[in-house]
């Protein structure tokens, strides 16, 4: 899992106000309510969301299983290739 110490202090505060990393990554936190109460932390929302996504996908992507296919999954791969 990503280390929350790596966040800026403001992003760390926003993360805590929103319910913490675990809750956010499980869809139980409320970043909108936190921002409504503390609009000055809005510039740090992206940092927090990036952190949550990293936490959700931090485990190595390498796999000995084939992935479930979906055309949108393929599409993301193409976008990634176009924007390395």
């Amino acid at each position: 899992m990503a280390d929350s110490d790596a966040l800026s202090p403001e992003a760390q505060r926003l993360l805590e106000l929103a319910g913490g990393r675990e809750k956010l990554s499980h869809g139980q936190g409320d970043i909108a309510a936190a921002l409504q109460a503390h609009p000055e932390l809005a510039p740090y929302m992206n940092e927090v969301m990036q952190h949550v996504v990293e936490a959700a996908t931090a485990i190595a992507q390498t796999s000995s299983s084939s992935k479930f296919g979906h055309s949108l999954q393929v599409l993301v791969g193409k976008i990634r290739t176009k924007n390395p």
């Binding site: 970043i31 969301m49 990036q50 959700a56 993301v76 990634r80």
Partner: peptide, 19 residues
């Protein structure tokens, strides 16, 4: 929504791209 961030991340998309 936040879902775009999560779905994008789950599909190995670069989180920076959504910033």
């Amino acid at each position: 929504s936040n879902d775009i961030d999560l779905l994008w991340g789950c599909s190995d998309g670069d989180p920076q791209a959504l910033q």
